[in-house]
Simulated scan of single mutants.
Amino acid sequence: MSLIKTNDLQRIFEKLDKNGDGLVSLEELNWLLEKIGVQISLDELESLVGKSSLDLNEFLSFYGSISSKQNNTSRSTSNEVVGLEEEEEENEESDLVKAFEVFDLNGDGFISCDELQKVLSRLGLWNENSGKDCRVMIHVYDTNLDGQLDFEEFKNMMFLTIS
């Protein structure tokens, strides 16, 4: 997966910090994780994090640690078994399916401009001042020109964005 920029992470943190106290509770963090398809209990999350809330720097560190674990587990060396690479591809595909489902709000198998904008807004990555039009964002990867992304177009977008 591609890394999220620090300023985007800061906006996500600010959106999660509903009461504006400069801390994100484990409940708020767990809500975000569930939205992106990660199911974890609050007890497991607390044992992972080691405390009941995170300030911005701790939130950035938490993201950095899970990102580096993701990157470390997704690298293959020439000494690894081919079966491990196949499992990795299946996991990658499964992760993409989960990510696609987050954006496909109505479950019709397509990501529309409205769905893209709603999800980006919820994550704090979109506002009226963003200046980007979702139709333009979708058009770049919309190979059949139907104005929305199906799973294969979404997958191509993710792989092209990552590389």
Rank of each mutant, 00 (worst) to 15 (best):
L16I: 04
V81C: 02
F13P: 01
G50H: 11
K118R: 12
E92F: 10
S61L: 12
C134P: 10
Y141R: 00
N72S: 14
K15M: 06
E85K: 15
E86S: 13
G147E: 03
Y141S: 10
L26H: 10
S2G: 09
F159I: 13
N30A: 10
I4W: 08
I12T: 15
T73P: 03
V102D: 01
Q39Y: 15
M157V: 01
S25K: 10
N19T: 05
S68Y: 12
L96I: 02
E92I: 09
G64M: 07
N72T: 13
E28I: 08
E80I: 05
E46W: 13
M137S: 14
N79I: 08
V82Q: 05
Q70H: 14
I111Y: 00
S94H: 10
F151Y: 06
L45W: 10
G147C: 07
S130L: 07
S78F: 11
E152K: 14
S2C: 05
S67L: 06
C113F: 01
L125Y: 08
V102Y: 02
F59I: 06
R75M: 12
D95V: 02
T6C: 05
D133W: 06
R75Y: 12
D150H: 01
E101P: 00
K118D: 12
I111D: 00
D55I: 07
L116A: 02
I111S: 00
G147P: 05
N127T: 09
S41F: 15
G50A: 06
I138H: 03
F100K: 03
D133L: 14
I66A: 02
S25P: 06
G109F: 01
L60V: 03
S61M: 09
L26K: 07
D108M: 00
E85N: 09
V82S: 03
S163T: 06
L23N: 12
G107A: 02
S41Y: 13
F154H: 00
